[in-house]
Simulated assay, not measured.
Amino acid sequence: MQNRQIVLSNRPDGIPGPEHFSAKTTELDLTLAEGQIAVKNIYLSIDPAMRGWVSLEPNYLPPVQIDEVMRSICVGEIVDSKHPDYAKGDTVYGIFGWQEYCVCEPNPMVRKINPELAPISSALGALGPNGLTAYLVLNELGKIEAGETVLISTAAGGVGSIAGQIAKIKGCKVIGLTGSDDKVEMCVNEFGYDHALNYKTTENLEKAIAELAPEGINVFFDNTSGAIADAVYPNLAMNARALQVGTAAVESWEPETPLGPRRDRHILTKRLTVMGFVLIDHTAKAPAALQQLAQWYTQGELKYRENITEGLENAPQALADLYKGANTGKQLIKV
């Protein structure tokens, strides 16, 4: 059987684009060994983390190698199985890559999806890694409480939009930072934020945040780092929690780490807690979190948006567009 794939053809220096990938077709043997499954991909996830995956910078996963299929979380259908826990026809989620088919042995990341609960694409977003990240960061690391003020960067994105809604469900005051006036309106009118700011057009972002949160920010959900975070740290309250979820605003960490304002004094004098989050460290807590997310969804308390681009060949361009902020919601590829 022929299998279309998108592979990393050369390593980017900074943000990856279509020029760093190439398409190829390989022959795939669907004769399975015991314990293996064969998956036909339906949706591929496009994520900010992919920039780190294709870089040689130290990261939580090894870098994708040249001529290797681009790593991606996917949803697909099992077309054959020799694993006792998975059957032909099951819908599954896992790291199956930018390709039509994947043959693998299920690892702890692979899980079955109930297609009757919600559209299966939601397993890559609100009812998948985006929702899990938002839920676990706010509840396990941030330990948010009713009445606190939470600030979220990339507030209209796949993770940020869910985080904002969860914080509101928990009774918090929620402020969002996003990159366009349309997204500001979306945050407030669709996702329920109390306030949102366009960081690109706000003349003095630090001052604008201070006016919206005169008593300070208790929990900072930081998807960006960089200059955006620099405007937030002076506004953090005593004993605030700064949760590093992404570094989307930093184009490259090589050859030299980019420098910004020193945050040490804020950390010291305000007794801040600063923590990093990587989803794969929290897989044991995923089932309970997914159950709660599904409950909120079925009750109509959780909304989400998706950008779905047709065609495997368009995955590299969709990734480049993601870093430009062109998406509103979770970016997916329909194979």
Score class of each variant (00 low, 15 high):
L132Q: 03
K330V: 01
R262V: 07
V335D: 04
Y323C: 08
A318D: 09
A240P: 07
K183D: 00
V219G: 04
G300D: 12
S22V: 10
E215I: 06
K112L: 13
K334T: 12
Q299D: 15
L8R: 04
A126Q: 07
V278E: 14
V110T: 15
L30Y: 04
L61I: 04
L141M: 12
I169E: 05
G276L: 09
I73Q: 11
D29G: 00
F220I: 09
E251W: 06
K24I: 02
E145V: 13
A320S: 15
D47E: 13
I175Q: 01
T202A: 04
Q2G: 08
T149W: 04
P316A: 13
E68L: 02
A126R: 08
P62N: 03
A231S: 09
W53L: 07
G89S: 13
T31V: 11
T202G: 13
I175Y: 07
T269P: 14
K170E: 08
K82L: 05
I15N: 06
E27Q: 10
Q5Y: 00
Q292C: 05
A167S: 03
G160D: 01
L8T: 01
K88W: 15
V232D: 03
S22P: 08
T328R: 08
N114F: 02
Q331W: 02
W98F: 09
G158L: 12
M238W: 14
E206K: 11
G76I: 14
A213Y: 09
A231G: 07
L30D: 07
E211L: 10
E145H: 10
G97E: 09
H20P: 09
T201R: 12
G176S: 06
E145L: 07
Y297M: 12
G158A: 05
V69C: 11
A237P: 12
D13Q: 13
L197E: 06
G158E: 05
L236I: 05
A38L: 04
K324L: 15
V274E: 14
A210E: 14
A227W: 05
I166H: 12
Q291R: 11
R241E: 09
T178L: 02
Y93G: 01
E256T: 10
P214N: 04
